[in-house]
Design a protein around this nucleic acid. Structure first.
Length: 418
RNA sequence: GGCCCCAUGGUCAAGCGGUUAAGACACCGCCCUUUCACGGCGGUAACCCGGGUUCGAGUCCCGGUGGGGUCACCA
């Protein structure tokens, strides 16, 4: 059997999102479960949304989470590098490739030049809405002859290239978690494939790249389901073998809406700063939308890889539950290597001005004992500050029975006498 | 609004024609503990509605309803 190849393909428009992390995770788990490859590709075809440093950030977050990939974009010594046979892995560096395939489509009559201005398009859509119609491209440039189009281009007119969809054709595809999906071309627009700035849209780039990079399984959020027929159609006209599609259920907030920046706490970085362990976040996230056959809930990455399958991915969107995340994270904290945990705790204690470098050097073992003592009562590492505070600055005397009663444990006297 | 997807306790979820409908989080009791936490024991709580199919539907089909997604030169 052919090796499976999967990819995570975020766009560098900000930080890695919790939903994005789960998508990356499921891709990774499936790839590793099948001893296949996992690739990181950067989809930066929208120049207006590009955020400086976003690529480095994305990679940093994936690395922190323990999601490793075999090919694609990496950061080495602070610089972005690419590794693999199918590069470049940054779409803005593949413009000539897309151009070639766009030309092929035009030649075959499966795409056409369109000169409609943004203003005209807006106006058309506005009028359609008023009439109660579905906003859709009216096809003005569809019938333009190639010669005429080329002449207008020669005259310096701006243009885009649109996909020429056949009328009233059912496009079918199979989704591993949703089964058979049929959508009629009547309900889809003649999608823009090449923008006027010469960059491809997602719809063209994703198909070309996934094919060229040998991607076997496309695993992404279900918001892509409605545009999948466009992609499927492109595979058909190019005569390429179609990948297997897997559309994942959405991760929702307590309002049952897609997680968004407005509600806060959606970037992986936020959770890292709050002191969640990567193992805890990953473990919990795996459980939103998937469950193992044995219903075990505390799982390491290796166990997740071993047990993961798309057959057990649910169709329903799941709410991101902070309480349960805390519970999962607590388990990982308790079982964590004490030295690693101490290392993670130190920055929080430092920031709270409870300890300094000198203190760390002189009393590392004391700090370790402290961490050991309080680790059972915290659900994220940042909470250690509150729990540890009482041991500092002579807030409590070893004789103070009443104060001690708050936290008396086997190590308490040891800590206080230090 | 058109199209698409979805529907088991408050939440995550087992279930894939016959079960007293698991388990976990949260919540509420009790126990343990000089307190808290951890741990242990127990409890409250669910198959959206209506039609079919079937000897028998949470499970299959159809229709409603509800929720979500999508209708860009954004991904």
């Amino acid at each position: 059997m052919k090796d499976v190849r999967l990819r995570f393909a975020p766009s560098p428009t900000g930080y890695l999102h919790i939903g994005g992390l789960r998508t990356a995770l499921y891709n990774y788990l499936f790839a590793k479960h099948n001893n296949g490859q996992f690739i990181l590709r950067i989809e930066d075809t929208d120049r207006t949304r590009y955020v400086e440093g976003a690529i480095e950030n994305l990679i940093e977050s994936l690395q922190w989470a323990g999601i490793e990939y075999d090919e694609g974009v990496f950061v080495e010594e602070g610089k972005i590098v690419q590794r693999g046979e199918c590069g470049p892995y940054i779409q803005s560096e593949r413009l000539d490739i897309y151009r070639k395939y766009v030309d092929e489509l035009i030649e075959k009559g499966d795409a056409y030049y369109c000169f409609c201005s943004k203003e005209r398009l807006d106006k058309v859509r506005e009028e359609q809405k008023i009439k109660g119609l579905i906003p859709k491209y009216d096809g003005l440039c569809r019938s333009l002859s190639l010669d005429e189009a080329k002449e207008r281009i020669a005259n310096g007119e701006e243009y885009v290239v649109r996909l020429k969809l056949p009328a009233k054709k059912d496009i079918k595809f199979k989704d591993l978690v949703r089964g058979d999906i049929v959508i009629n071309t009547e309900d889809i627009d003649d999608q823009v494939l090449l923008k006027s700035d010469g960059y491809p849209t997602y719809h063209l780039a994703v198909v070309v790249d996934d094919h060229l990079m040998g991607i076997t399984h496309i695993v992404r959020g279900e918001e892509w389901l409605p545009s999948t027929p466009k992609h499927v159609y492109l595979y058909e006209v190019f005569g390429w073998e179609k990948p297997t599609y897997v559309h994942l259920p959405t991760v929702l907030n307590k309002e049952r809406k897609k997680l968004s920046k407005r509600h806060g706490d959606v970037s992986v970085e936020d959770f890292r700063e709050k002191g969640y362990l990567p193992e805890g976040l990953i473990n919990y996230l795996a459980l939103v939308g998937w469950s193992p056959e044995d219903n075990e809930e505390i799982l390491s990455m290796d166990e997740l890889i071993e047990k993961f399958s798309f057959e057990r991915v649910s169709k329903t969107g799941g709410i991101f539950d902070r309480d349960k995340l805390d519970w999962v994270n607590e388990h990982h904290i308790r079982n964590y290597d004490i030295d690693k945990l101490t290392q993670l705790a130190i920055p929080y204690l430092k920031e709270a001005n409870l300890i300094d470098d000198k203190f760390i050097e002189e009393k590392y073992d004391w700090i370790k004992t402290l961490v050991e003592t309080v680790k059972e009562s915290i659900s994220s590492i940042s909470e250690i500050v509150d729990k540890a505070d009482i041991f500092f600055n002579n807030k409590v005397e070893p004789e103070d029975e009443e104060a001690l009663s708050v936290l008396k444990q086997e190590h308490v006297s040891e800590l206080l006498n230090a």
